[in-house]
Amino acid sequence: MKVEVDVPKCVASGQCAMIAPEAFDQRDEDGMVVLLDETPAPEVHEAVRESAMVCPAAAIHLAE
């Protein structure tokens, strides 16, 4: 799996960082998404998929 984020689309909801903290974080200054791991370990894939599904801005893109 490869993960990409479209930071300008991010609305800083924080769902991704709560669901998959191994792959996502938020910037302190504005809450925008920070991608920690663009190729997360297999055990994190389900959480990353869920993060992409619930992202209100559809800012997370996955390539399986």
Rank of each mutant, 00 (worst) to 15 (best):
M1A: 13
M1K: 06
M1E: 04
M1G: 03
K2D: 08
K2L: 05
E4G: 01
E4F: 12
E4T: 11
E4P: 08
E4R: 14
V5F: 05
D6C: 06
V7N: 03
V7Y: 11
V7W: 09
C10N: 10
C10V: 08
C10M: 00
V11Y: 04
V11F: 03
V11I: 09
S13K: 07
S13V: 12
S13W: 01
G14M: 12
Q15G: 04
Q15K: 09
Q15Y: 15
C16P: 01
A17V: 00
M18P: 04
I19V: 02
A20P: 10
P21I: 01
P21Q: 00
A23D: 06
A23C: 06
F24L: 04
Q26M: 13
Q26A: 10
Q26N: 07
R27Q: 15
R27K: 15
R27T: 10
R27N: 07
D28W: 11
D28V: 10
D28A: 13
D28R: 12
D28L: 09
E29M: 10
D30Q: 01
D30G: 07
D30W: 12
M32N: 05
M32P: 05
V33D: 04
V33P: 14
V34Y: 03
L35V: 08
L36N: 08
L36K: 15
L36D: 03
L36G: 04
E38A: 12
E38C: 11
T39M: 00
T39E: 10
T39F: 04
P40F: 11
P40L: 01
E43H: 09
E43M: 01
V44R: 00
H45R: 13
H45W: 15
E46D: 12
A47Q: 11
A47E: 00
V48G: 03
V48F: 01
V48C: 09
R49M: 10
E50I: 08
E50A: 03
A52C: 14
A52N: 13
M53L: 12
M53W: 12
M53Y: 14
M53C: 07
M53P: 02
C55N: 08
C55M: 09
P56M: 05
P56C: 04
P56Y: 02
P56N: 00
A57T: 05
A58E: 14
A58D: 14
I60M: 08
L62Q: 02
A63L: 08
E64Y: 15
